[in-house]
């Protein structure tokens, strides 16, 4: 089997359309797909200061590399990397080392904040003190700090490395849990347009699978050895992921069909679950659906 376009040795067989591509043609295909997503969904415009939430993993590294290379020539869009150090020994310190090296080599500003600095404790310390689900507290703190750090650095938009697999899993998980209100907040561009306290999020890799991103990352030397978060559990998400990958193996394009059919109904969901006025936390002023945000609730538990 050879590359469909130039008949040389292929590096990937595209899962969705059954064609094989060589390194050069694949990198072109990948970048074109991201550019198309940015253009069609108007993810950012010239003059924006785009933040990239950087963990050092393949998805966020690929997002940063792409946005950096796509905006390097035009000089009107600024790229800043934002990293959150949760304080997970033997895990995050390793991936952050790689992220720092990449940003230094490519002259990309990198802003790092940590749970220790903002909440007084690392995640390792928090979990020793509180009997709490690690991913719940970690997710709340990470989202909270990303928004805070985005505002601190005057970002106009924040890009994350979410991909087609993540989104297909989340869509199904929301359906299985009968939570379509949460589903209405998905899509390539999220957040409320006119809320100055919430920096909108974009997902430039929205239409690319994990396998496609890993291939891109490998070809660009962006891959670090597999390193699993010590708190990762055999969660509901991993069950959904496994089922979807098994289905996709047997019925190719299952995951893209989930995404595409979801995007067809997303405008209706958004209209149906339109939120009224946003509240701001009485303690920290960050956007929240309640009187006091969840990050402040957890923060109070830590201080007790």
């Amino acid at each position: 089997m050879t590359c469909k376009k130039c008949l040389t040795k292929p590096v990937i067989k595209l899962p969705n359309n059954n064609i094989s591509l060589c390194k050069k043609c694949y990198l072109r295909y990948f970048e074109k797909k991201v550019r198309k997503t940015i253009r069609i969904y108007k993810l950012f415009k010239k003059g924006d200061t785009v933040g990239v939430a950087l963990s050092g993993g393949k998805d966020s590294m690929a997002t940063l590399q792409l946005l950096h290379s796509l905006t390097q020539q035009q000089r009107t869009t600024k790229i800043i990397a934002i990293a959150i150090d949760e304080g997970i020994k033997g895990y995050r310190d390793e991936t952050l080392k790689f992220a720092k090296k990449f940003c230094k080599e490519n002259k990309i500003p990198l802003k790092i904040t940590s749970y220790k600095k903002e909440f007084g404790m690392t995640l390792d310390q928090i979990l020793k003190k509180l009997d709490i689900h690690p991913c719940s507290v970690c997710g709340v703190f990470r989202r909270y700090l990303l928004n805070k750090e985005a505002k601190r650095n005057k970002l106009t938009i924040l890009a994350t490395g979410h991909n087609l697999d993540d989104e297909a899993q989340t869509i199904l998980m929301n359906q299985f849990r009968n939570n379509m209100a949460a589903a209405s907040r998905l899509g390539p561009l999220t957040g409320i347009k006119d809320d100055k306290k919430f920096i909108r999020r974009i997902k430039p890799l929205y239409f690319l699978t994990e396998k496609e991103i890993m291939t891109y990352a490998f070809l660009n030397n962006l891959v670090t050895p597999f390193n699993e978060c010590p708190y990762a559990e055999d969660s509901f998400r991993s069950r959904v992921r496994e089922s979807l990958n098994n289905l996709d193996k047997e019925y190719p394009s299952t995951k893209s069909s989930i995404i595409n059919s979801f995007l067809d109904i997303l405008p209706i969901l958004k209209e149906h679950y339109k939120t009224g006025d946003i509240n701001y936390c009485k303690e920290c002023g960050e956007p929240t659906s309640k009187e006091k945000c969840q990050a402040c609730e957890y923060s109070e538990l830590i201080r007790k």
Partner: peptide, 8 residues
């Protein structure tokens, strides 16, 4: 066989 699944 390199895993494409993120470890986080």
């Amino acid at each position: 066989f390199l895993s494409v699944i993120s470890g986080g």
